[in-house]
Simulated scan of single mutants.
Amino acid sequence: MTWRRKMTDETTPVRRLFNTCKQVFSNGGPGIVPSDDKIQQLRDVLDNMKPEDVGLTPTMPYFRQNTGPENLSPPPITYLHLYQCEQFSIGIFCLPPSGVIPLHNHPGMTVFSKILFGTMHIKSYDWVVDAPMRDSKTRLAKLKVDSTFTAPCNVSILYPEDGGNMHRFTAETACAVLDVLGPPYNLEGRHCTYFLDFPFNKFSSANGVVLRDEEHKEGYAWLQERDDNPEDLNVVGALYTGPNVED
């Protein structure tokens, strides 16, 4: 018994996260939301994660602001890949100040996002059920979150149908965000789609849509699908060098 307790105590936070993800998403798949108990289990692990648990510090090159006049492109965002299988993926987005991950969706996915350090603005939407589409690429959505978060803060969770399934991240300072996706994206019908958002009254056809809370039109927007590679998306991959994820 003493030996088993010692082994458990020596488990690193990132391995604890990996082991918890294996349990939480063991019977997962597109559109399958883990039970409340499992969600709380993973939430508890992520809420206690710190930058040093994954080998990150704000002084790393990923987080430096490029102030050179020759750089007219969006600030590069670095993605560190920790692990992926059919059931879930673990990764970290490293954003310099003013870095943006454009508005995008998570089809059939439950997503846990933990800000490890920094201040970030998050804006998110959910689709309005049964609302008519304006056209083949434009659909009505309801604002879910439009707030700024500063670490340390609790993990945010979105679900396949609610919780802000479409979201945008904007770094107000250098930020690191630990993401757990269950299941991960794939190229067989569940790829990442990017959107532009427009106010509800932007289009004249919006007048044909009746809202239950008509007085709160500012809480609604039209989301329009974008091309697969938005010009304001600048993500590069880098090798994860933190503690080992798997045993």
Results as ranks from 00 to 15, higher is better:
residue 98 S to Y: 03
residue 39 I to L: 15
residue 56 L to V: 09
residue 232 D to F: 00
residue 134 R to K: 15
residue 112 F to N: 05
residue 155 V to Q: 04
residue 168 R to V: 07
residue 107 P to N: 12
residue 107 P to F: 08
residue 228 D to T: 11
residue 178 L to R: 04
residue 17 L to K: 05
residue 152 P to S: 10
residue 17 L to P: 01
residue 92 I to Y: 02
residue 185 Y to D: 05
residue 28 G to P: 03
residue 29 G to A: 10
residue 131 A to Y: 02
residue 72 L to E: 11
residue 46 L to E: 07
residue 246 E to Q: 14
residue 35 S to F: 02
residue 124 S to K: 09
residue 201 N to E: 14
residue 183 P to D: 10
residue 16 R to K: 15
residue 152 P to F: 05
residue 247 D to A: 12
residue 202 K to H: 14
residue 17 L to C: 03
residue 143 L to R: 13
residue 55 G to P: 03
residue 38 K to L: 14
residue 58 P to F: 06
residue 9 D to H: 10
residue 3 W to Y: 06
residue 60 M to N: 04
residue 228 D to P: 00
residue 41 Q to P: 02
residue 199 P to L: 02
residue 152 P to H: 12
residue 70 E to M: 13
residue 163 G to K: 03
residue 58 P to N: 10
residue 34 P to C: 11
residue 214 E to M: 00
residue 63 F to A: 08
residue 59 T to R: 07
residue 118 G to K: 05
residue 68 G to A: 11
residue 145 V to S: 02
residue 161 E to I: 03
residue 215 E to P: 00
residue 145 V to P: 01
residue 97 P to G: 04
residue 153 C to L: 03
residue 151 A to D: 05
residue 160 P to W: 06
residue 137 K to N: 13
residue 203 F to A: 05
residue 79 Y to P: 00
residue 178 L to K: 06
residue 105 N to T: 04
residue 111 V to E: 03
residue 192 C to S: 06
residue 29 G to Q: 07
residue 74 P to M: 12
residue 102 P to G: 10
residue 221 A to V: 00
residue 14 V to Y: 05
residue 68 G to S: 15
residue 98 S to V: 01
residue 113 S to T: 15
residue 124 S to N: 10
residue 103 L to Q: 08
residue 181 L to D: 05
residue 2 T to H: 13
residue 180 V to H: 09
residue 11 T to E: 14
residue 149 F to V: 11
residue 70 E to D: 14
residue 165 N to Q: 14
residue 212 R to L: 09
residue 79 Y to V: 15
residue 159 Y to V: 01
residue 233 L to V: 02
residue 198 F to T: 07
residue 245 V to T: 12
residue 225 E to G: 07
residue 146 D to I: 03
residue 158 L to N: 14
residue 157 I to E: 03
residue 67 T to V: 08
residue 174 A to G: 14
residue 42 L to V: 02
residue 237 G to N: 12
residue 202 K to E: 13
residue 239 L to M: 10
residue 28 G to R: 01
residue 159 Y to K: 06
residue 23 Q to I: 09
residue 124 S to E: 10
residue 36 D to Q: 15
residue 245 V to W: 06
residue 178 L to H: 05
residue 23 Q to V: 10
residue 204 S to V: 06
residue 242 G to K: 02
residue 233 L to I: 01
residue 34 P to Y: 08
residue 62 Y to G: 01
residue 81 H to M: 11
residue 218 E to T: 01
residue 57 T to H: 09
residue 19 N to D: 12
residue 240 Y to C: 00
residue 37 D to T: 13
residue 31 G to F: 07
residue 89 S to W: 01
residue 51 P to D: 13
residue 241 T to C: 12
residue 67 T to G: 11
residue 177 V to W: 03
